[in-house]
Design a protein around this nucleic acid. Structure first.
Ligand SMILES: NC(=O)c1ccc[n+]([C@@H]2O[C@H](COP(=O)([O-])OP(=O)(O)OC[C@H]3O[C@@H](n4cnc5c(N)ncnc54)[C@H](O)[C@@H]3O)[C@@H](O)[C@H]2O)c1
Ligand SMILES: NC(=O)c1ccc[n+]([C@@H]2O[C@H](COP(=O)([O-])OP(=O)(O)OC[C@H]3O[C@@H](n4cnc5c(N)ncnc54)[C@H](O)[C@@H]3O)[C@@H](O)[C@H]2O)c1
Lengths: 223, 223
DNA sequence: TTCCTATTGTGATTTAATTCACAGTGAAAT
DNA sequence: ATTTCACTGTGAATTAAATCACAATAGGAA
């Protein structure tokens, strides 16, 4: 019946949302291979989940599989965009134009996925005013103004720990509700805001832990 | 009673292991503030979990809280190191010395957490032989040999998608069991190996999704 | 010493996530 | 037209994760 959108009263699991990105990555590769339809079995194998889980995840948002051809690759990819809200471009800004920040500025992948890095900020007065990878670097003094002017929806944090919480608070007051944080520092965000951590050391620790376990002592290893 | 180590027959949840890193980050900050003991309530508040969950997580590995002083900050931090296996240094190597790879090479945080970036590899012949942030960059031809010589336990992947699977397969054959992958490409690893993805776009998509939801439609948002 | 209080560790319970398993179905084959 | 087959979507069952709630107890107060 191809109804798109959430079912009226269901709460949506964030695990499901995270897997949507995984599914979409696989769908994009299939699309590059000119594959039009894919069955849950194959897409599940590509992404390391069970076919039942894939179908269940999709069922959260409606029903868009063709019962014997499977799922339309391009259509499902577009549907996932709509679900996560990247069918229209979202503006990002970056705080901290150091080694990591410059790598992020040079990264082309964001635009491909519906994100536009609109501006960068740095506390270092030598950096403010300069241009990095085509983006103007602003002084932290201009944070609120630039956020409003450029309609920044998500702030990427790649500065030092000092001043981090302050940057979050100011950005939140200026209307930013989403933060992506690379800085290994305990932070908090106001009600109604969200912060996602990217903690590389934590991932390494997880790997370190896994590599020391006997296989049957670990539950639910996604590969 | 302070028994350390896993209980005999219990399977360990990876969710728990991931939270250990979170706890440790908070413990390190408390340690810097010269705080000796911390109660589950406070540590839970710092890390955004419930006190019961924190205690349950720790109970997986034994019992090391003092019943009325709480947990010894430094001791618990050390215990977590031991659990995840970073009480002895683990050697990493990096594949792909581009923008992101060089940022990773310049990052001091790995050493602080018990990881040593021992070598780097790049397919570009102009890069092989040069030194980046103090690390020799090797040709991909030398992958197996360097991995063995330097006892590399974890391979960090920051190259282009082309050739990625090949690098994984070769490294696995040379004895590497753990991979940390920044490349947005579907991959697979042999049995007994583990791969952790760091997918920045996926995190952004999750944030995008969250910011469009009414609060009560989303379950389990960790802040 | 004895009592009081607040905290840990953990059985019991609840809630969430995943998997099972199959009815209903649409396309292709005959 | 009819049959066959394999697939989706989903109730039911199972498994895992989180929370509740409290007995046991260490430390401080009196
Ligand atoms: N480099 C990596 O690969 C890596 C990996 C994981 C995490 N991180 C984290 O990311 C952050 C940045 O790392 P890096 O290697 O780019 O460091 P860096 O020292 O190269 O750059 C940090 C930049 O942030 C700016 N800055 C500092 N405080 C600021 C503030 N309060 N507001 C705005 N800008 C500020 C500095 O001027 C500098 O330009 C660090 O917190 C680091 O722990 C880095
Ligand atoms: N730059 C970022 O912030 C960022 C963020 C997320 C993900 N990524 C991903 O990380 C990877 C690297 O990004 P980047 O910006 O550093 O790219 P880059 O083009 O700057 O660097 C890539 C490097 O990898 C090398 N390389 C390519 N193929 C190789 C192979 N088969 N074996 C060994 N080395 C190889 C290249 O010679 C180059 O030096 C990309 O796949 C990108 O999608 C980057």
């Amino acid at each position: 019946m191809a109804s798109i959108g959430t079912k009226r009263d269901a709460k949506i699991s964030l695990n499901t949302v995270e897997r949507l990105s995984l599914y979409r990555r696989a769908l994009e590769e299939l699309s590059h291979e000119k594959i039009q339809y894919v069955h849950s079995h194959r897409l599940a194998a590509l992404t390391g989940v069970t076919p039942a889980q894939l179908r269940r995840d999709l069922a959260t948002f409606g029903s868009f599989g063709n019962i014997s051809r499977g799922y339309d690759v391009r259509q499902m990819s577009a549907t996932i965009s709509r679900i996560v809200g990247t069918d229209e471009v979202q503006n990002l800004a970056l705080v901290g134009v150091g080694h990591l920040g410059r790598a992020l500025l040079s990264y082309k992948g964001f635009e491909e996925r519906g994100f536009h890095v609109a501006a960068a900020f740095d506390a270092d007065p030598d950096k403010a005013g300069r241009v990095f990878a085509g983006r103007r670097c602003y002084s932290m003094d201009d944070l609120e103004e630039v956020i409003s002017t450029l309609n920044v929806r998500i702030l990427v944090l790649a500065s030092h720990p000092q001043g981090l919480q302050d940057a979050i608070d100011r950005a939140a007051a200026a209307g930013v509700r989403c933060f992506l944080n690379f800085v290994p520092k305990i932070t908090s965000v106001p009600d109604g805001c969200f912060i996602e951590q990217i903690d590389i050391s934590a991932k390494l620790e997880k790997l370190s832990f896994l590599s020391r376990q006997k296989v049957d002592q670990v539950s639910a290893v996604r590969r």
